[in-house]
Amino acid sequence: MKKTILMSLMALSLAACNSTQTVEQAQQFAQCTFPDAPTTEAPAWICDVMPNDLEAGAMGYAKKSVAGMGVMRKVAINEARVQLAAQFQTDVNNLFKQAVESSVDTDETGAIESVVETFESVTKNVVTRSLSNSKLIVSQVSPTGGLYVLVGMDKATYQANVDQVVDAAAKESQLWSQFNSEKAEQELSNALNSLKTM
């Protein structure tokens, strides 16, 4: 009896090692559910799975309110836009930092860090003033009455916003004053232009 049990356990462990699952199957996640109704399946975008045709997107939520759907929609959209702006600001700052570090060759200590900090400040100012043309993509009411919305930008809109940041940065005199050589200034200009052709 003990020998049979031992053989069965060994067979099961060998079978587990010889799994026929593909990588895609092994990466499957649990179904998406509404955060405010965890037993009910929800669209994947509620679990931060962005549609392929969006360059950037963010989800917003408003709990059920006696004020009505109009107020709930405004609250959810505003929350999504705040998250989208923060995500956009981080993305653009990281892209700029990579572009500067890979294309600007300067011996001035601290110059690159100062330029990156100035660019981050410019990006924050532009995003605070306006993140243009983000739009409501889809909304979904949960079983508990809460409202979920997806706000996003397609590739063209995303790039237009990047261009807006780059144009504002190009006008920023502090950005250029960190460099006192024509070569370094040209390299910085090239780094900015590379963001406009992403």
Results as ranks from 00 to 15, higher is better:
93 N>F: 07
114 S>N: 14
185 E>G: 12
188 L>G: 05
8 S>H: 02
80 A>G: 05
110 G>Y: 11
53 D>W: 13
89 Q>H: 05
16 A>R: 11
193 N>F: 03
99 A>W: 06
128 T>M: 04
165 V>K: 04
68 G>R: 01
1 M>C: 02
100 V>A: 15
11 A>D: 04
132 S>M: 08
196 K>H: 04
4 T>K: 15
4 T>F: 14
134 S>N: 15
91 D>I: 02
11 A>P: 05
72 M>W: 07
133 N>P: 05
65 S>N: 08
63 K>W: 08
135 K>N: 14
197 T>L: 10
1 M>E: 13
63 K>Y: 10
106 T>S: 14
85 A>K: 06
177 S>K: 15
19 S>F: 09
47 C>Q: 06
52 N>D: 13
101 E>W: 00
132 S>P: 03
181 S>K: 09
48 D>S: 12
73 R>A: 14
89 Q>E: 15
34 F>D: 03
6 L>V: 13
69 M>W: 01
180 N>I: 07
183 K>P: 03
128 T>H: 08
72 M>E: 08
116 V>D: 04
16 A>F: 15
70 G>I: 08
50 M>A: 07
62 A>H: 03
2 K>M: 06
53 D>M: 05
10 M>S: 13
84 L>E: 04
75 V>K: 07
113 E>K: 10
78 N>P: 00
151 V>A: 06
127 V>N: 04
114 S>L: 13
43 P>T: 04
32 C>M: 03
68 G>T: 03
17 C>H: 11
122 V>N: 05
113 E>T: 10
4 T>L: 15
159 Q>G: 01
141 V>D: 10
45 W>T: 01
136 L>Q: 12
60 G>Y: 04
80 A>H: 07
75 V>W: 06
20 T>G: 15
153 M>R: 04
147 L>H: 01
136 L>F: 03
144 T>C: 04
4 T>A: 15
116 V>P: 01
131 L>G: 07
37 A>R: 00
18 N>L: 14
70 G>Q: 08
81 R>G: 07
6 L>T: 10
14 L>P: 13
88 F>N: 02
115 V>F: 06
35 P>W: 01
157 T>R: 09
116 V>W: 01
8 S>C: 13
182 E>Y: 12
148 Y>N: 09
11 A>S: 09
106 T>G: 09
14 L>D: 14
156 A>S: 13
172 E>I: 06
175 L>G: 06
16 A>L: 15
186 Q>D: 12
64 K>Y: 12
145 G>T: 05
57 G>Q: 02
113 E>D: 14
36 D>C: 09
92 V>R: 00
173 S>H: 12
105 D>H: 10
197 T>C: 03
140 Q>G: 01
57 G>Y: 04
182 E>C: 03
188 L>S: 00
69 M>K: 10
